[in-house]
């Protein structure tokens, strides 16, 4: 499907608070000291500014990820891998029943540019929405100065395996990533490696836990190893996942350390299905018909195995694949 390019339009800075307002397609975005106000032809919605910015920078960094990113129960995006829907109320029964729901489809690059433009203007120096809440300043108040440095970071996709010659490098002191305070009690050593000449790109190992422990971002995965279309993502998690993720395929979580508590909802209705508590060593599928949001009381390490096969989302959407990974005959 071909979609006309849409550019984000910025206003002059507000004379009192200093922030710009933005128009992107039929949506408007405006922030004040405490809140973001999203408008569309039939309605408006207000989101607390910290939650909005934490969700927006991750949505950009994840490349809109697999499936639905709910900033909250009303507003969010759905990835169609080339285009992205921005919706308001589409998955909220109350909005649908009153006819104020709205969805507009954009080219992925246009959404990325729009979200980056908004983030750059609305994120002040001293506030870093990719960090854990205890590790950063506040987004509240009037505009001060634009934040310095990259707002979007941490998504470091390895092509084959992190640390191989010519591939991405694990985090280190030299790269400016010290061990996070929450993992200071762990010991990190290097694997012992002997390589015969000529096999430098075949014999390889690195300390994965050390790489995760040095993350300066939370809920922001990095690809570390790829088996064909199977992608291993690792991430450090602290406080709460600032979005609710709706799956368009099955994914798997492996809890490497500590604990994450997950709220599980029906993907389409948002009705609660219950709760999963994952502790170190636990493995759990996240089926293709759910939304989930995680809560990590102490910074923890999580591995996610994704199936990045192109077109998979359409097979699940059409019902050609069951929305859970282990079919009945295998039990």
């Amino acid at each position: 499907m071909s979609i006309a390019s849409v550019k984000v339009i910025a206003s002059a800075p507000d004379p009192v608070l200093g922030y710009k307002k933005f128009q992107f397609g039929s949506f408007t975005f405006e922030r004040d000291m405490y809140f973001v106000h999203v408008g569309w032809p039939k309605g408006t919605h207000t989101i607390e500014v910290d939650r909005f910015l934490r969700a927006m920078v991750r949505d950009i960094g994840w490349g809109f990820f697999y499936g639905w990113i709910f900033f909250d129960d009303v507003f969010g995006t759905q990835n169609h891998y080339g285009t992205v829907d921005i919706y308001a109320g589409t998955y909220s029964k109350g909005h649908r029943d009153t006819g104020v729901d709205f969805l507009e489809t954009f080219n992925t690059d246009d959404v990325r540019v729009a979200f980056e433009t908004i983030s750059v203007n609305w994120i002040n120096e001293g506030y870093d929405p990719l960090r854990a809440p205890m590790e950063t300043g506040s987004p509240l108040g009037p505009k001060t100065r634009d934040a310095a440095g990259p707002l979007i970071r941490g998504f470091e996709p390895a092509r084959r395996m992190m640390g191989l010659p010519g591939d991405t490098s694990p985090r280190s002191d030299a790269s400016g990533h010290p061990i996070n305070r929450a993992f200071a009690d762990m010991k990190f050593d290097k694997p012992d490696i002997e390589i015969e000449p000529g096999f430098e790109d075949q014999v390889h190992a690195f300390n994965l836990f050390d790489h995760i422990a040095r993350a300066d971002v939370t809920w922001n995965p990095s690809f570390t190893s790829i088996t064909r279309a199977c992608i291993c993502c690792v991430t450090s998690e602290e406080h709460m996942l600032p979005v609710i993720h709706g799956n368009d395929r099955n994914e798997w979580f492996i809890q490497l350390t500590d604990e994450i508590q997950w709220n599980i909802q029906d993907k389409n209705t948002g009705n609660p299905r219950g709760r999963i508590v994952m502790k170190a060593g636990d493995v759990c599928a996240m089926p293709a018909d759910i939304r989930h949001q995680g809560f990590s009381p102490k910074r923890s390490m999580l591995m996610v195995l994704e199936n990045g096969t192109p077109g998979l989302e359409e097979k699940y959407a059409k019902g050609e694949l069951e929305p859970f990974p282990i079919t009945a005959s295998r039990w």
């Binding site: 009690d185 350390t257 999963i276 170190a280 493995v283």
Partner: peptide, 28 residues
């Protein structure tokens, strides 16, 4: 930091109004 081992691990829990086979919850 809590890590698991063969000799010491604590399993989490799964409490869902759904078919638990869809989640295949296990511990390494």
């Amino acid at each position: 930091t809590i890590v698991g081992s063969l000799n010491s691990y604590q399993k989490g829990s799964i409490d869902l109004n759904d078919d638990l086979r869809h989640y295949a919850f296990s511990n390494i």
